[in-house]
């Protein structure tokens, strides 16, 4: 096959070659090609082993796609994701969204306080479950259950600082919570393993 393409390349004429290697046909980057490289920071298959980086496996495709576009535009604050998101077009972002949506979410194995998790469940059921169903398992509005505590702290701090825009209801509910409440809520999500 290589020889054949080489032959065509010669025949087409004027194809300059820097090396003696034949010109190889290439197909556009596949979903796996685009997505595998994200795993360096987000873990194999998007299941993060790092405490501050979220697991992106099993994320709802639309949620992922929207998040990446918000990173790209700067609407969602970030240290590094915005810079990276700018390297991809809409089609590529969608391909990555679908790729990670098809990976199996593995809940982070992390310590939690059972007492706090119990209080957190009450707070969740009262304030959060309308949009974050099934105890905050991955859905249209992101994955909370089984996400790393450190990451959840970062995300909530972003909402509270006003840098990250969330639904008004959520920001309001978060603002009313004490630090202990937020700690309890995070322990509840961490308890789901």
């Amino acid at each position: 096959m290589k020889e054949k393409i080489w032959f065509y390349a010669l025949f087409a004429g004027g194809v300059a070659l820097a090396s003696s290697l034949p010109v190889l046909a290439t197909t556009a980057a596949t979903p796996a090609m685009l997505s595998n490289t994200c795993n360096g920071c987000h873990g194999t298959d998007g299941n993060s082993a790092g405490l501050s980086n979220p697991t992106i496996a099993g994320l709802d495709s639309n949620y992922f796609d929207t998040a990446m576009k918000q990173f790209k535009s700067g609407e969602r604050p970030s240290s590094i994701m915005g810079r990276l998101a700018k390297g991809y077009n809409d089609g590529e972002l969608k391909a990555m969204a679908d790729f990670f949506a098809a990976r199996k979410f593995a809940a982070a194995r992390q310590p939690f306080d059972a007492g706090k998790a119990g209080q957190g469940k009450v707070l969740h059921d009262k304030n959060c479950r309308m949009c974050h169903a099934d105890g905050g398992k991955s859905g249209a509005n992101g994955a909370l259950a089984g996400q790393w505590k450190d990451y959840l702290h970062v995300a909530i701090a972003e909402f509270l600082s006003g840098n990250r825009k969330g639904p008004e209801m959520m920001t309001k509910a978060l603002t009313k919570m004490t630090e202990a409440d937020i700690e309890a809520l995070i322990n509840y999500y961490a308890s789901q393993q």
């Binding site: 873990g43 790092g50 405490l51 501050s52």
Partner: peptide, 14 residues
């Protein structure tokens, strides 16, 4: 600094 540690955990775990 916290992302760097987290990055390293993923790089090593990969």
């Amino acid at each position: 600094a916290s992302y760097a540690r987290s990055w390293m955990q993923n790089v090593m775990s990969e």
